[in-house]
Design a protein around this nucleic acid. Sequence first.
RNA 1: GCUCGCAUAGCUCAGGUGGUAGAGCACUCCCUUGGUAAGGGAGAGGUCCCCAGUUCGACUCUGGGUGUGAGCACCA
Length: 646
Amino acid sequence: MPIITLPDGNRKEYDKPVSVYEVASDIGPGLAKATIAGEVGGNLYDACDIFNEDVNLRIITSKDDEGVEIIRHSCAHLVGHAVKQLFPKANMVIGPVIENGFYYDIAVEKTFTQEDVQSIEDRMRSLIRQKYDVIKRVMPRSDVIAAFKSRGEEYKLKLIEDMPDEESMGLYYHQEYIDMCRGPHVPNTSFLENFKLTKVSGAYWRGDSKNEVLQRIYGTAWSSKKELNAYLTQLEEAEKRDHRKLGRELDFFHFSEDAPGSIFWHPKGWKVFRQLIDYMRGRQERAGYIEVNTPDVMDRSLWETSGHWFNYRENMFSTQTEDERIFALKPMNCPGSVSMFSQGLKSYRDLPLRMAEFGKVHRYEPSGALHGLMRVRHFTQDDAHIYCTEEQMGQECIDVVALILEIYQDFGFEDIKIKLSTRPENRIGTDEIWDKLEGALSNALDTMGLGYVLFPGEGAFYGPKLEFVLRDAIGRDWQCGTLQVDMNLPERFDIAYVDEHGSRNKRPVMLHRAVLGSLERFIGILIEQYAGAFPAWLAPEHCVVMNITDKQSEFCSHVVELLIEKGFRASADLRNEKVGFKIREHTLQKVPYILVIGDKEVLSESVSVRKLGGEDLGVMRIGDFCDHLGHDIALFGRRSTSVDFE
RNA sequence: GCUCGCAUAGCUCAGGUGGUAGAGCACUCCCUUGGUAAGGGAGAGGUCCCCAGUUCGACUCUGGGUGUGAGCACCA
């Protein structure tokens, strides 16, 4: 005699076992039709699942996040149904839910073309139109194995082998097609109409590059047409912000076949780059850092000592000289930094020693990993190594975290995730030391009241690390800052300082940190975050001064000189073009301010100011404009600078 | 590195059963001196990514290479 309690406290009594669907029907026919699944005690159940005990039940529809996930999961099954109808020889592998959608990995001889994907999608739509019921059967293990054996589904059999303890499994029948799944799934295919197959690619079996490549079909699915379209529109918007596209349009940089993965910075892009470095220099100097510079090319033996030669040999650029010495281009700055530290005797009075370097590093990244500015083979780190005593370590960690967060605010990033990765299985050092190092990092976060996500076992073999993940304006995550405690290098390079008792072999603690990470990549993130419309302090150019006719040319040039003298980045556009044309061009180049000068302005020694986006700030004296621009620059990116225009 | 796709003017892209190619924008010149997102006209511009092969003939077909895109794997 089950009593079903609903979230609003309503209780329904039954004199026989009852299904999720039946409970929903008793509440109302509309809900019954919309029911996808039920939730009891945090577990999800199919609409057809039956309860014969008292439970607290929540009905899941497509309005619930769980409902959307189920829709996506069922869509993956529907891919299977369609693929097996069109390509009977295909072996279905796994079809999980991912963010915004789903995929299905398929083992099949032929490779799917765009046309194949289209025909699969068409078949899925016709199956949806049939509104057939998805039927669940829980079967004993042996029956499931027999079912897949008879259908030749080799990979499903392998997956079953991976679950030796399961006595029985759920099979979902999509007409003649069956799929194995924990479920739940939609009751019938009418729930699945708002989907679209998005791409097809290869993927390794079990995610291991040593294994065979399967074909992966990706799709997205939503509870309504509106949400589906919103998502597709968002993808289009993201494409418009693609930093590779904007980088070309704004004339920031280019790439060449002769230097794959390396950037040719044009004057405008380089201006932003220099601005970033200048800004970081100022920040770090105020935070008590010194800056050094170490060689780009160093002897192989150094990299053997650091361990890089052994661990990353294939990913390093190296070179052999006439005298047969082998040198490597530095893939990291730390060995150079350590060499710098060991130059001369260091006293405890020198600690903490915060040694920064804007080091250019080279890494021979796999060709398939290269991606615009985001993943390159030659990039600049805003790197620093802090050498300190064990007692100083805690405070240094706090200071680094505070500095990182403060800097991110200047760029307008508010949504910052922090990941703490702790001791991995393969590691050096005693548990006692690991306790201290992990404690230093977690204490820093706790002291500052910052939340973080723990990644147990994900730390480097030589120490734990913090990672700072930024979310950009279109919702993508980028790992930028890091703070690592390194027990490896001080040991390997045998560095030491003299303590207050004159002992010369005290080992310093070494912190390794970066704020922006790769400057190149950070600029890529910024381009996408700002959609190319940089806030004034970072913009390659603050303003363009333009005349209306030749008569005002001289005054325009005079104004530009004045602005440059005051330290602003300004240029003149005196071309014989209509003012509307020139405004359009500089607007497309996303210059923050456009200053128009006609006869009226010459007479009153003023400028007519137009902001990027079209806002008319009116006519003002040149000095007033300088004040206005100065204030804008001082804001950094702390105010929303997103501009709506096409 | 792996799977699949792509590579034609500075950019965005057309194009041809195999007979060396076009548009728009940009560029140069001329006219126009016009007050807040495209004034008009003319002109110039190409080893159709590279190397082989097939062919009387290859930008087009075949093979290899390079770069690039999506995803996978990798990211000290």
